[in-house]
Design a protein around this nucleic acid. Structure first.
Length: 309
DNA sequence: AATTTATCCAACCGCCTATGC
DNA sequence: CGCATAGGCGGTTGGATAAAT
């Protein structure tokens, strides 16, 4: 029953592991003169002791002449994040929008860089939404304590500033989480639906990250061979998710406190920051009685809570 | 300087889909 | 229509290297 594996047991003596320059040369020579044709028979014709699948991968991920090498640009990074938010782990699909990049390369870059970055920002890399687990809140309290201690000891020491920035980032995402869940709960009650709520765009800066349907893809990106133009791409990119620097986060944090005590930093809040804190102020203005926080705590601690997505 | 730990990424593995017979 | 096969995809592994202790 079932089909035999690509490289069957009688191929047990086939070579595996890293490719040697000689093997690369053989594969390149063969494909350049004959094309790859049938991958299954290619290794035999090319004089390689490899399975066809291995040859195909080597060609697709390394030897292909149109492969772009080197670090991902910030633009590429943003595009990957945005595409992932709509396509999920469809690496080959994502790769079609990044000419010269392979699905494997993008997948590796996601797993080693972007995923970590999102987690550090308190965002769930799968959903691209703020994380709602309580460990996250523990991190926040620890960071705030560390930030306060660091400020007391040496307010301008870089690690203290970094901790403050991290705490600010976590707090910002927490606010977003609370806003999102509290408002969605309220509106779900009012409207009988948890699909949307009136503040979503305000809070999120109307990022396509949170759209239920995949974001429309500009026609220019549909053909890999066409390449792309960065000016048009900017319409398709999210700007707030990846690139927020600790400096910006610190500024946002300072904005929440007494501005008179924070004159050492330039106040350059982005529109998304502004809307975030406008939303926060509105929420606080509407919900300043003590039952508000009790409700939030009840929501976050209840196992059946909608927060526990 | 030696050892441990973390990071990166090429390559493999197993499953799914498309295609041809 | 059912089966066999090749191609393709996403998840995972493991070796090389860098950084930290």
């Amino acid at each position: 029953m079932g089909r035999s594996p690509c490289c069957s047991s009688d191929d047990a003596n086939l070579k595996k592991g890293p490719w040697t320059p000689e093997e690369d040369e053989k594969l390149l020579d063969y494909i350049n003169t004959h094309g790859h044709g049938n991958w299954k028979t290619l290794p035999k014709h090319a004089g390689l002791n490899r399975c066809g699948k291995s040859c195909r991968l080597r060609w697709a991920n390394y030897l292909r002449p149109d492969i772009k090498r080197g670090r991902f640009s910030e633009e590429e990074e943003r595009l990957i994040v945005n595409l992932h938010s709509t396509l999920g782990n469809k690496w080959s699909k994502i790769a079609t929008y990044l000419p010269g990049r392979t699905d494997n390369e993008i997948k590796n870059f996601w797993n080693t860089h972007i995923r970590k970055k999102l987690l550090n920002m308190g965002l769930d890399p799968n959903t691209h939404k703020p994380r709602t687990d309580l460990n996250h809140l523990l991190n926040l309290t620890q960071l705030i304590c560390a930030a306060q201690l660091g400020s007391l000891m040496n307010p301008w020491e870089s690690s203290a500033l970094k901790v403050q920035a991290d705490a600010a980032q976590l707090l910002q995402n927490l606010i977003q989480t609370l806003n999102t869940n509290q408002l969605s709960t309220i509106t779900a009650g009012l409207m009988g639906s948890q699909k949307s709520y009136p503040y979503e765009g305000l809070i999120n800066g109307t990022s396509s990250l949170y759209a239920d349907e995949p974001a429309p893809v500009p026609q220019k990106f549909h053909s890999m061979s066409q390449g792309y133009e960065s000016a048009d791409m900017s319409d398709f990119l999210i700007s707030e998710l990846v690139s927020e620097s600790p400096e910006t986060a610190t500024t946002s944090m300072n904005q929440m406190g007494d501005d008179k005590t924070n004159t050492n930093h330039s106040s350059t809040m982005s529109p998304a920051d502004t809307s975030m804190f406008q939303a926060w102020e509105k929420l606080m203005g509407d919900e300043t009685d003590s039952s508000f926080w009790k409700d939030i705590l009840d929501l976050t601690s209840s196992p059946s809570s909608p927060i526990q997505r």
